[in-house]
Structure formats: C-alpha cells, structure tokens
C-alpha cells in the first residue's frame, strides 16, 4: 500500500461517517436552520471526496456553488419566511412515516444489490492521463469541444431561471 492510498483511506474513514451523520441529522432535526447548516457540512464532506477522486474542479465548484451560493439562498429564504418549528397538526395519511422509512430502506437494499452485481470489485483506473496538464485545463478543453452545445444550453437555462424567479417574486398588483 502506497502512502497516497493510505492517506485516501484515512480521509475516507473520517469523512464518510461524518457525511452520513450530517445527512441523517438534516432529516431528523426539527429546526430547519440546523438542517441547512448540517447540509453545508455534508457538502464540504462531498467536496473532500471529490478531491480524493481526482476531481479538483468539481470540488471547488461544489464549495463555491453549493456550500456558498445555494445554501445561502436557502438560509435567506428560511429567515425571510420565519423559522417556526415544524408542527404536525394532523397526519394526512396514517402510517406514512414508517412506510416512508421502510420504502427508503428497500430502495437502499435494491441499489446495493444492483451494485454488488459487479461494480464493487472494479479496479479503479487512474485519471492521470485524462488530467494531463491539470484537471481544470482538461475539463475546460472537454467542455468547449465535446460539450459546447450543452454548455450554451445551460447558459440559456440559467437566464430563464433568473427571469422566472423575478416573475414569481414580483408582487401581484
């Protein structure tokens, strides 16, 4: 075992339980602001995994866009709308919560079963050849050659989303 593999193992052992615990905490805590802050920690853990998986650019975007912009937007809306604790006045469907937990567990078992069919023992290839000259450069090269159309479409989507948010946020006369 090389030292870099050892380092990856140590970082994974620290980050993986943290990611699972923060995700569970986000679902279980009653206070929505705590949920948002736990989700920020979860996003930082995921950024750590991306670095381990040689995706430095996506890790940086994860911290800037998700942990930065999107979660600030969430917290802003939470503060704007008031942050009363969740009170369930009346269960709309009886037994929905246990059924939800059971269904989620069933989904987990199904996914893991599908994974166990062969991916678990896959040999990890290296991105060293693809990342030639740096991860950001390589991503930029592929983004502006093979994925130019998708990139332009994403720009249009963002403009439409911004205009849509303005229209929705405008007070009706």
């Amino acid at each position: 075992m090389t030292s870099s593999e050892q380092a990856e193992l140590i970082v994974f052992i620290i980050l993986a339980p943290l990611a699972v615990v923060t995700a569970l905490g986000m679902v279980l805590t009653r206070n929505a602001v705590y949920s948002a802050l736990l989700l920020v920690v979860n996003f930082f853990c995921l950024a750590g995994f991306y670095v381990l998986l040689e995706a430095q650019f996506v890790a940086a975007v994860q911290v800037i866009v998700y942990a930065g912009a999107i979660m600030v937007l969430f917290l802003f809306v939470l503060m704007l709308l008031g942050i009363g604790n969740e009170v369930v006045v009346k269960e709309q469907m009886r037994g929905q919560r246990p059924a939800a937990v059971l269904l989620a567990l069933g989904l987990l078992v199904a996914i893991v079963g599908a994974l166990a069919a062969g991916v678990f023992d896959a040999e990890p290839a290296s991105l060293a050849a693809a990342n030639e000259g740096g991860n950001v450069e390589a991503i930029g090269r592929i983004l502006f050659t093979r994925y130019t159309f998708a990139f332009e479409t994403a720009g249009i989507l963002l403009v439409v989303a911004a205009v849509g948010a303005l229209v929705l946020g405008k007070r009706q006369p």
């Binding site: 995700a23 986000m26 919560r97 059924a99 937990v101 989620a104 987990l108 996914i111």
Partner: peptide, 13 residues
C-alpha cells in the same frame, strides 16, 4: 447509495 436513500426518506417524511 446511503446518502440517496436518506434523501428519499427525508422527502417522504
């Protein structure tokens, strides 16, 4: 897979 299942449970609960 674990994170996805937690997310599904959260949406339902």
């Amino acid at each position: 897979a674990i994170l996805f299942a937690i997310g599904v449970a959260g949406v339902l609960i």
